[in-house]
Amino acid sequence: MDYKQIVRSDSLIAQTLETAGLLLVPLAVIVLMTDPVGFFMLGGTLVLFALAFASRLYNAQRSIEAFRKMISHAYLFPKERRLTIKVAKLPLDVREQLEPVWGTTVTYSDLQQQLTLALGSDRARQYLPEALKYADAVAAGNA
């Protein structure tokens, strides 16, 4: 499994901790010139970075769990949903790529691969969740 593509560790908390820790570094250096308290501030920086890492690790675990849950299912695209207004609002190239899957059951990875090849990784990542909104999750053996 390519975790580099799956793991999402960003969060507001992690980013805030990193920013605070980074801003604390020059402040600690300035304070250190006149007061040994600067050492404690540098220690505080390390603590903030450690907390940021822990927060990112937690987020990564959750994102992997969500991904595993997603790929453990197959997805049935009922034919009648092809004509809904929301589908009609999708871009033309996305709709073209979805044409073969209406009325069939596909796995997450197959659909992702198909969209990535046709739309590129960025747009595939954007429209894959959109497409899955019109599918019903079924057992993986039905694909």
């Binding site: 793991v7 560790s9 796995t107 197959d110």
Partner: peptide, 26 residues
């Protein structure tokens, strides 16, 4: 079409996740 299932061991997975998270943090 078949679903992709993870094949690696849990301990190596943990190491790999930590490595990826560390890279993102860095």
């Amino acid at each position: 079409m078949t679903a992709v299932a993870p094949q690696s061991s849990p301990s190596s997975d943990r190491r790999e996740i930590r490595r990826v998270v560390w890279q993102q943090l860095r």
